[in-house]
Design a protein around this nucleic acid. Structure first.
Lengths: 133, 133
DNA sequence: TTGCAGAATGATAATCATTATCTTAATTTA
DNA sequence: TAAATTAAGATAATGATTATCATTCTGCAA
């Protein structure tokens, strides 16, 4: 959980805001949010900070159906059910992967920071639209 | 596994190529591959076909660290360990989620097609680079 | 303290996968 | 057959992300 290398003030700013927000957010949203807090960072700096925080293993990311990447602290072991049509994303309350059973061949070659588990399908309204149409 | 609505010839072409290829591929790669096989589809058609196949629940997608989306038939219950730095992606041999235990509140509201389970971290070479540097 | 080297930052241009638009062709239906 | 609907092709537009480059900051040695 501790960082491999120290954070710069800007990187810490981004990390702190991420911890404050109770939901995963995109880089663009972070950028806008920071402006709202009178803490104007360059857009490139936000992306660089997120990249750095990922390399430290303290920030994770997943991609929404529209391709946008959203970020959150790794501490949140939260997973989602997502509709492939409308993009509705509902969080799961518990993680079905308590003890990640990684093959012996993988473990020594990777230092695992986090995992993402996501279910995809159709939500009820979208399923009706598809079958009726 | 059966489609909710019939496939057009072009959609079937895309689906068949996906089943032929033994690995997940991007839409751009599919487009180029089809040209190589003298079956020239418009790029937009490839994207539309993939979208349609997703809605049918017979094609799944996941996003690479660079944001690119890659597609594969849903039958493959394959998952990956990915390095957040260099993007190296190694498949797992077995799925650690045999029986997806979805909360009662989710099940009736979603028809699940597939799930993605991915582990992220640093591969050994990248981990060394980070700690040394 | 001063000067230098390397990293961080900001601003903005460039990239590139994806989507939207619009026209034409194919398919279905009455 | 003709009209209506859907699919497909070509290409412009979008928009998130990355690259570039000039500037500023930081740490350290003299």
């Amino acid at each position: 959980m501790s960082a491999l290398s120290p954070l710069t003030p800007r990187q810490a700013t981004v990390f702190n805001l991420l911890k404050t927000l109770k939901q995963e957010v995109s880089a663009q949203t972070l950028y806008a949010e920071l402006r709202g807090h009178q803490q104007c960072l360059g857009l490139a700096t936000v992306y660089r900070a997120l990249k750095h925080l990922q390399l430290q293993g303290i920030v994770q990311t997943r991609s929404l159906p529209n391709g946008e990447l959203v970020y959150s602290p790794v501490s949140e072991d939260r997973h989602y059910v997502t509709c492939v049509k409308c993009g509705t994303s509902v969080p799961l309350e518990h993680c079905p992967v308590n003890e990640p059973l990684l093959p012996k061949a993988i473990t020594p070659r990777f230092k695992i920071f986090y995992h993402t588990l996501e279910f995809f399908g159709l939500c009820s309204p979208c399923l009706e639209q598809e079958t009726v149409a």
